[in-house]
Each structure stands twice: as structure tokens, then as C-alpha cells.
Design a protein around this nucleic acid. Sequence first.
DNA 1: TTATCTGCAAAAGGTTTGCAACTGA
DNA 2: TCAGTTGCAAACCTTTTGCAGATAA
Lengths: 144, 144
Amino acid sequence: MDKSLLELITSELHKRNMRLTMPRRRIMEIFALSGRLQTAQDLYLSAKKEGLPVGLTTIYRLLGILTEIGLARTYLLNGETKYIFCSPQHHHHLICTRCGMYREIFECLVLPMETTDFQPESHHLDFFGVCYNCAEKCKTAPKG
Amino acid sequence: MDKSLLELITSELHKRNMRLTMPRRRIMEIFALSGRLQTAQDLYLSAKKEGLPVGLTTIYRLLGILTEIGLARTYLLNGETKYIFCSPQHHHHLICTRCGMYREIFECLVLPMETTDFQPESHHLDFFGVCYNCAEKCKTAPKG
DNA sequence: TTATCTGCAAAAGGTTTGCAACTGA
DNA sequence: TCAGTTGCAAACCTTTTGCAGATAA
């Protein structure tokens, strides 16, 4: 994981009297490097698979913290709660509805909104579609 | 509730061998006219308050159907699952983070996204902020 | 050194399911 | 008429909480 990102996380944690522990660091790395939507269970199993002796509780607590800091976002897809690791900068998401992969784009594609009776404070834009890999798979193995 | 919307819903239900029952109709009206994010519980209580003898199960089942048809969308806010009633046309949402009120805007404010290795199929854009009423309240009763 | 964190087990609470009676088309 | 719907109660399962031992700063 990027060093400046780790420093940001550390400082955000310390601001809140929290600590950068080994389990937190390892789980965040797994999360950030996965590049796809993750459930708490997914992360738990990935951590186990990498030999990290972690509890589900710790995963939930970390996801709560990251969400609060703004480094994770929650989606409810197909009845499942999924988490995306988020860069600190403003960005949009391209999300593959087939495999759960996502990508961040940092160019803001939102036109200014003109209203007098609503004060916008932030916005979220997500594109849902098919990633390159899944599109290729469809070509070689068409369903039916 | 708008007549053409009701017809659309009816036809969507019939397409799936489903029926427009009295409870469904009443719950949808409450939902659509509320103009704010609703939990299943919220709708259940509103229905009860209006003298509709409905079960929570029916609410959940209806919300599932509406979501599938595209007439509802799910948000996970502050750990609560909230539902928005959605018009059939493409639209964005203005959501008040203070009171849960929302509004649809039908002008698409999203610039075309240029990528070769992702096929976008749809997008969701939500603006979060403060609605007129809440802004007024803040002026007259500043916190602190 | 000590406030914070961890993981287990247990509790909580939202959501789904099975089923017998009911109802829209 | 009868396939689909309803609401209750129970089951399910994800998420949270309490707590004693471990650990970052």
C-alpha cells in the first residue's frame, strides 16, 4: 500500500486516539489491493487465507472506522453489504456488475447543479457496467 | 399516486405473474408520496398509523419487488437500510442528510465517460446536502 | 505504563421463510 | 376458480456488544 496513504491513515487514526495495529494494517492492505467490492466475510476469509489470525469483529470495527474517515464506502447490492476502499481524493467509481471489480476515476464528470432551495455538500457518481475481463469472457463463452 | 405510474406498476407486476393487491397499492402510495428515505420499519409504522392492517413481511416483499422493477433504490446510511421510491425515467437525487427528504432531478448532469476497457450500462448520481427547510431551521436555531 | 485493541462467545436485531387462510383477475 | 398474496411465528444470519488478555505508543 502507498506510503503517503498509510501516513494519512495513521494520522487520521491518531487524531481519534486510535492506533495503527498490525491486524488493521494487514486487513487494509488486503482490502485496498483487492480492487473489488468486498463483504466483511470476504475480507475475513482473505485474511485467513493469507495466514492472518484475525476475528470477524476486527474486520467490522475497521470497516466502521474507514467508512467514518471516508476511506471506504458502503453499497447494498443484491441484498449484500459490500465495501469499496476509497482514495482520499474526490473520485467516481466504475463498477463491474459481473465480477465486482471497480476502478476509480479522478476526473469529475458532474456538471454544476443549479438550484436555489438545496445546498449540495457532496455528490457520488457511480458507473455500473462490464469490465474488460468480463466482456472478453462473454465473447469466448456466450451464454445459452 | 399518478395514474400512468400506477398503470406502469400494474403492467410490470402482471409481466411477472404478480398482482396489484390493496396492501401493495396502499403501501406504494405511502412510500411514493412520503418524499423521503424510508426504512421498512418507517413504512410499516406509517401504514399502521393510516389504519392499514399490514405486516412487516409484506413491506419487505414489496420493497424487494419495487427494487427489482427499478422503482425503488436502496441506500445504506448510518448503518440503516433506507429506500427511495424512484420514477421510471432516468434521474438523479438530491438528498437532505439532515431530514432524509429527497427530490428527483430529470436533467442528466453527467458528462460522457471515455474509456475503452469498461462498458458502462448505467450510472447513479446523488447529491447530498441540506434542503431548504433544514437550512431555514439552522438559521433560526443555530446550534451551540 | 496504560489506554486502546483483539477475539471469542453471546446477544441483538433486521430480514427471510414456512404455512394456512385469504383474495385479485 | 385457483395461482398468487398475506401475516404470523419461527428461523436465519449479519452485525454488535461485553469482557479478559494482548499490544501500540
